[in-house]
Design a protein around this nucleic acid. Structure first.
Lengths: 145, 145
DNA sequence: TCAAATACGCCTTTTTCAGGCGTATATGGT
DNA sequence: ACCATATACGCCTGAAAAAGGCGTATTTGA
């Protein structure tokens, strides 16, 4: 409902690792958790969420695991955040939108809406592809800054 | 250290109210809290923070209060968020940057950096002026969407 | 039949958020 | 001089959210 948190980080780490595998090669939650140093349960949960939303395909049973089925350059950070967190908003706008008894007193309702919309657009235009694939270029830019 | 929260909302509401006053006219924390329906203490605290950072000027004593001293179109959401929250990051990047003992295992370090940098730029380019002054235009756009 | 994997609900602990309380200080009015 | 009304600010507690461990069911290959 709000900011990007550890779940999203675990998801990103998992996706990055899977993107480096050969096409169709399965990766287990255990391997991902161990490789990235993330807690197993939390990692498994985000993998399940991503499988539900068809970003991954899961295979049960022994020798099961997960495999990427979507091109990450076609998946936005907004989509990932929404499927993991439910929604992403810069601010909560506690006086919530529809039936707000404070609507007349609250002079910030619209500004918060503007902001949330802007942030949604912002996340919509960031693809997981650019976030996960361009490590070297990004590193270079960081050093320069 | 993370997302925009109520403190930022209270600050925005207070700024909007003060921006509507005549230049130099003082506004008390009490008036702001009552007008916006925000808790007094929380409101007073963000006013004090903004005064410390010279966005407002405060006057003590009876008939004291706060007055805007900066043009809101020259204040970015990033600046406001940073002075109230300390910093704003899309994700925490728990394996924190400098001395990270997991840096070799963590394959997400750089992507989170990219994201945080992007979000910082995003907030830097939103001015409080555009957020608070353009209610009507914003409302119109909302209805259309 | 068993081992290893996904799937998922429940629960506790930890952390963060929110905000009230008390008190010090400043200042104008009476 | 005194008091009412401000700002300034540290401390503390209760509520909410995040994090993640545990137990268990289910699937599937050996």
């Amino acid at each position: 409902m709000n900011r990007l948190n550890r779940k999203v980080e675990y998801a990103l780490m998992a996706l990055k690792l899977m993107a480096q595998k050969r096409p169709g090669e399965l990766t287990t939650a255990k391997e991902i958790a161990e490789t990235t140093g993330s807690p197993f349960d939390a990692t498994a949960r985000v993998l399940q969420k991503m499988a539900q939303h068809k970003i991954l395909r899961s295979e049960h049973g022994a020798h099961g695991g997960y495999v990427l089925v979507r091109d990450l350059s076609g998946v936005s950070l907004l989509e990932l955040s929404q499927l993991i967190l439910g929604a992403v908003k810069a601010a909560k706008c506690l006086q919530n939108m529809g039936d707000c008894e404070l609507k007349d007193r609250c002079n910030i309702h619209s500004p918060i809406s503007i902001l949330n919309r802007k942030q949604e657009d912002f996340y919509k235009n960031i693809t997981l592809g650019e976030l996960l694939m361009e490590r070297d270029r990004a590193r270079t830019r960081e050093v320069q800054a």
